[in-house]
């Protein structure tokens, strides 16, 4: 299967009068774990479904490797999709589910079962061959869906909110598993999610979308350190988005400290509106008159060296180097 870079060129999707995806450009190098991140309705799922071939692009092109796949049938693109609800065939055994696409290609029973078993070993499903999907737990179903998608040797695996149906504990384990698989297979994974922690933990490339446009695309570090817009800063969390010197600015909450700062620091004071103990850190909310609410995440021992009480007026400060100017929204 021709694995290669995935490129989206002015890709657009319209449903009647509304535009779900508006002329987005993106390049995903081969072998990348890419997360599409954004609130619901931001166009991330539509983008993925266009790449998969389950939605027809209204305009623009999708290029995979050397091939323009915009108008190809789903199975001819070298992509495979794992559905949010897994979409396992309820009338087929686990083995037949995994071997389904090989059966459609007319591959002999012996050969397709051999291939399917190899994939099932990869995701540790060997024991469940003869079970029906309804007899499996959520995590097991997820692995069946994964094996079924991978059996076609796709160049890109598309995962539509693959962890949303799992409980929090399982979510962490499966997350690690997905990353391991992506490394082992060396193909690109395109993962749609609305959880920023998921994206941060997994992605080589994070694509943050809002209202059908890409707000920012970059490594998790890039996106977290230097959010391009107030939306990104707020969505990623852990940032204060403030209006200082007549322009929008972001300051990471964990860079804010209590007390007056020195020469190169900016100090503001205000009423303490919230103190929240969080184990290793304490979260402090100060209401500064002009700038608005400022959240500070302070290591526990530093906080208790000079604790703040609700209703007190305290000052907080941060280094001016930690201020990042945002694009005006």
């Amino acid at each position: 299967m021709a694995a290669g870079d995935l490129e989206l060129v002015k890709l657009t999707k319209r449903y009647g009068g509304t535009t779900a995806v508006e002329a987005i450009d993106l390049r995903v190098p081969a072998g990348t774990y890419c997360c599409f991140l954004g609130p619901s309705g931001c166009g991330k799922s539509s983008t993925m479904r266009m790449i998969a071939g389950h939605e027809i692009a209204s305009e623009g092109d999708i290029i995979l490797g050397a091939q323009n796949i915009t108008d190809l049938a789903p199975a001819q693109r070298g992509t495979a999709m794992m559905f949010q609800s897994y979409a396992l065939f309820p009338h087929l055994t686990v083995l037949d589910n995994v071997a389904f696409s090989l059966k459609m290609k007319g591959i002999s029973k012996e050969e397709r079962y051999k291939k399917a078993r190899a994939l099932m070993d990869l995701v540790d499903l060997g024991r469940f061959e003869t079970r029906m999907p309804a007899q499996l737990s959520g995590g097991q179903q997820q692995r069946v869906a994964l094996a079924r998608a991978l059996v076609t040797d796709p160049g890109i695996l598309l995962l539509d909110e693959p962890l949303s149906a799992l409980d929090p504990f399982l979510r962490l384990r499966v997350r690690t598993e997905l990353k391991r698989l992506q490394r082992e297979l060396g193909i690109s994974f395109l993962h749609v999610t609305h959880g920023q922690d998921e994206a941060m933990a997994l992605a080589d490339l994070v694509v943050i979308m809002k209202d059908g446009r890409i707000e920012q695309a970059g490594s998790p570090q890039d996106v977290f350190h230097r959010p391009a817009t107030g939306f990104v800063a707020r969505f990623m969390g852990g940032h204060n988005v403030l209006h200082l010197d007549g322009r929008p600015v972001s300051v990471r909450a964990d860079r804010v400290r209590i007390g007056e700062g020195g020469e190169d620091a900016r100090s503001l004071s205000g009423e303490v509106r919230g103190v929240e103990y969080g184990g290793a850190t304490v979260t402090l909310v100060v209401h500064a008159a002009d700038a608005g609410e400022i959240t500070a995440v302070i290591p526990e021992e530093q906080f208790y060296a000079g604790p703040a009480e609700l209703g007190e007026t305290r000052s907080v400060h941060w280094s001016r180097r930690d201020e990042y100017v945002l694009q005006a929204a």
């Binding site: 199975a75 949010q84 396992l88 459609m104 076609t152």
Partner: peptide, 26 residues
């Protein structure tokens, strides 16, 4: 479930194959 039809199409099933392998059994 309509996503089953999509999953079958994603797996390369033709219209008749979807009919025979998914719709008829279900």
């Amino acid at each position: 479930d309509r996503s089953l039809i999509e999953a079958a199409r994603d797996a390369g099933a033709s219209g008749w194959q979807i009919l025979w392998n998914v719709v008829v059994p279900l």
